[in-house]
Every structure is written in C-alpha cells, then in structure tokens.
Lab assay of single mutants.
Amino acid sequence: MVYKIRDKETGKVYEVTIDEETNEITVYDVKTGKPVKTVNMTIEELKEAGYEVEPV
C-alpha cells in the first residue's frame, strides 16, 4: 500500500510503500519516483519516530 509520510520536524514529505506482512517500507524520491532506501518498521513505529502517515 502507498502512503505519504511527513517529517514533523523538517516538513519533508516522502512517498513510501509498506508491505503489511513483512513491515518492509520502501522510501521513494517524490521528484524522480526512484527508491531511496528500504527500512523495516511498522506504521506505529513511523508515527513514534515523528512522522505523520497518510494513505494515498
């Protein structure tokens, strides 16, 4: 599923895909559409880390 996340401190917005089964999150560069990095976190962990998470 695709989400937009926003860093509450910097205001930067990222587009991510989240595999609900493995909790693998792939972060994409919004301008190029290319993957930047992959992390292993849940949506709740993202929120605790200071991100706003919205489904696209």
Rank of each mutant, 00 (worst) to 15 (best):
M1G: 11
M1C: 14
V2K: 15
V2E: 06
V2W: 15
V2C: 12
V2P: 10
Y3Q: 04
Y3I: 08
Y3S: 02
Y3L: 09
Y3G: 01
K4P: 01
K4N: 06
K4D: 00
K4Y: 13
K4T: 10
K4Q: 12
I5G: 00
I5M: 06
I5F: 05
I5N: 00
I5S: 00
R6S: 06
R6D: 01
R6P: 00
R6M: 08
R6V: 13
R6H: 07
D7F: 05
D7I: 02
K8P: 13
K8N: 05
K8C: 10
K8F: 05
K8D: 02
K8L: 09
K8R: 11
K8Y: 05
E9K: 15
E9S: 13
E9M: 13
E9D: 08
E9H: 13
T10W: 02
T10D: 04
T10I: 02
T10S: 09
G11D: 04
G11A: 02
G11R: 02
G11W: 03
K12R: 12
K12T: 12
K12V: 13
K12G: 05
V13G: 02
V13S: 06
V13E: 14
V13Y: 10
V13Q: 06
Y14V: 02
Y14P: 00
Y14T: 01
Y14E: 01
Y14N: 01
Y14I: 03
Y14C: 15
Y14G: 00
E15H: 15
E15T: 15
E15R: 10
E15K: 12
E15V: 15
V16S: 01
V16P: 00
V16L: 10
V16F: 08
V16N: 00
T17M: 09
T17A: 07
T17I: 11
T17S: 10
T17F: 10
I18D: 00
I18H: 11
I18N: 01
I18M: 07
I18L: 07
I18E: 02
D19A: 04
D19Q: 07
D19R: 07
D19I: 06
D19N: 14
E20R: 12
E20I: 13
E20F: 14
E20Q: 10
E20A: 12
E20C: 13
E21D: 11
E21A: 13
E21H: 10
T22N: 13
T22Y: 06
T22C: 08
T22E: 05
T22F: 06
N23E: 06
N23K: 10
N23A: 07
N23L: 07
N23Y: 06
E24R: 12
E24W: 14
E24T: 15
E24N: 10
E24L: 14
E24M: 15
E24C: 14
E24I: 15
I25R: 00
I25A: 05
T26Q: 05
T26I: 10
V27Q: 04
V27G: 03
V27E: 03
V27P: 00
Y28S: 04
Y28R: 09
Y28G: 01
Y28T: 07
D29P: 01
V30H: 12
V30T: 13
V30I: 14
V30W: 13
V30D: 13
K31P: 09
K31A: 14
K31L: 15
K31I: 15
K31V: 15
K31S: 14
T32S: 09
T32C: 07
T32I: 03
G33N: 06
G33K: 08
G33R: 07
G33A: 04
G33Y: 04
G33Q: 06
G33P: 00
K34G: 04
K34E: 12
K34W: 10
P35D: 03
P35W: 13
P35V: 14
V36W: 10
V36L: 14
V36C: 15
K37T: 11
K37R: 11
K37H: 13
K37M: 15
K37W: 15
K37N: 07
K37D: 05
T38M: 09
T38E: 04
T38W: 13
T38N: 06
T38D: 05
V39G: 05
V39Q: 04
V39I: 14
V39R: 02
V39T: 05
V39M: 14
V39C: 15
N40R: 12
N40G: 07
N40Y: 15
M41A: 07
M41D: 00
M41W: 07
M41R: 05
T42H: 03
T42S: 11
T42Y: 01
T42C: 02
T42A: 03
I43A: 03
I43N: 01
I43K: 04
I43C: 07
I43H: 03
I43G: 01
E44H: 09
E44F: 08
E44P: 06
E44R: 08
E45F: 05
E45C: 05
E45N: 08
E45A: 11
E45H: 07
L46A: 02
L46G: 00
L46T: 00
L46Q: 00
L46P: 00
L46Y: 04
K47G: 08
K47A: 11
K47S: 09
E48H: 11
E48C: 10
A49Q: 11
A49M: 12
A49Y: 10
G50D: 03
G50M: 04
G50R: 05
G50W: 04
G50F: 05
G50S: 03
Y51Q: 01
Y51N: 03
Y51L: 03
Y51E: 01
Y51K: 02
Y51M: 05
E52G: 05
E52L: 06
E52Q: 06
V53Q: 03
V53D: 02
V53T: 03
V53S: 03
V53H: 02
V53A: 04
E54Q: 09
E54A: 08
E54G: 05
E54S: 10
P55E: 11
P55N: 09
P55Y: 10
P55H: 09
P55S: 12
P55R: 11
P55I: 12
V56M: 12
V56A: 11
V56N: 08
V56G: 09
V56S: 09
V56C: 10
V56W: 12
V56K: 05
